Amino acid sequence: MLPIIAALGLISTAAAHGTVNAIVVDGTYYQGYNPSYQYITPAPVTVGWKIPQDLGNTFIPPDSYGSPDIICHLGATNAMTAAATKGGSKINLQWTPWPVSHKGPVIDYLANCNGPCETVDKASLKWFKISAVGLIDNSMSNGYWATDQLIKNNNTWTVQIPTSIATGNYVLRHEIIGLHAAGQPNGAQNYPQCVNLAITSSGTDNPAGVPATSFYKATDPGIKFDLYSAFTSYTIPGPAKYSGALSVSQTMPAPPAATATGVYSV
């Protein structure tokens, strides 16, 4: 897990959207990855996958859905450690400030690394969907979306690990899709973020999953979508949700009770 790193105070805190800067698992805080960490020696050890090319907090467009960048973001490489997690654990993912204009769904996937996630080939990961929230209320202009709920809860989203999956080392792929320009071709904006989890569980399921490069097509109704039209519904893109997925209420999370130290795996 993570050391407490005094050098974090040197990193710019300028507001920007696009990255998960921390996660909290059952009250324990784990540092996520910040692209600025590439300028720190030694670099912080984080549960978040490294995306040093994402200095501009950019996105993955539909014409890159077949690229490895859609897996865990731009040029992503493996995280160096994992967060200790249990089947049934609730994970709060803390985003950098998210713009209210960037409305869209929040989607979560898991992939079993079948070994250490610190060295797994990301292209070999097979993902199954454990959470997906899109349009919550269409009674207001442009709708009330999962991203609006995330902003309301201090830029935080909660996902619960299924109790039915087997013990193992997993990558959690957490993603926002911004729809503010999705009415035009190649306009959707995908912001995938990955973190390593070492999950202990009484379950036995090993869902098959699919590669992230097969999740979406540019013509999917949840990708090519006019946010400013008179819509009444929204179809969340990607594969069907895993049968053992758990729903969780999105509420303001409590402050973390502890900060992780050391390195953990199962």
Rank of each mutant, 00 (worst) to 15 (best):
L8S: 13
C194P: 02
S249E: 04
D137A: 05
L10E: 11
L197G: 03
P253N: 04
Q94T: 08
S124T: 10
V159G: 04
D205P: 03
A43F: 13
L227H: 11
Y216D: 07
L93K: 06
K129H: 05
K224Q: 15
P185Y: 07
V195M: 10
T213I: 12
D121R: 11
V195K: 13
D226Y: 15
S64R: 14
W95F: 15
C194W: 07
P62A: 03
P237V: 02
S265F: 14
Q94D: 00
Q189I: 10
F215Y: 09
V263C: 00
A123F: 06
A79F: 04
N57R: 13
G88N: 02
T77F: 03
T81E: 11
Y144R: 09
P221H: 08
Y170K: 01
I70R: 05
W157G: 05
T213H: 11
Y109M: 02
N186L: 10
W49C: 10
G66D: 12
F128G: 01
A258V: 08
A83E: 07
N21I: 15
N206K: 05
G56H: 05
E175R: 12
I107H: 08
P211V: 10
K126R: 07
P35Y: 11
Y39G: 07
Q193H: 11
P253T: 06
P255K: 10
Q160N: 11
I165P: 02
Y264P: 05
Q193A: 10
S12M: 12
Y29F: 07
N206V: 03
D205Y: 01
I107N: 05
W95I: 09
T261V: 09
H73T: 07
I177V: 14
S67K: 10
S101G: 09
F59Q: 02
N114D: 07
M80Q: 13
K224G: 11
G178Y: 01
P44I: 02
H17W: 14
I70Q: 03
A6T: 11
Y216W: 07
P116A: 14
T235P: 08
A83D: 05
P239M: 00
L246K: 01
K86W: 04
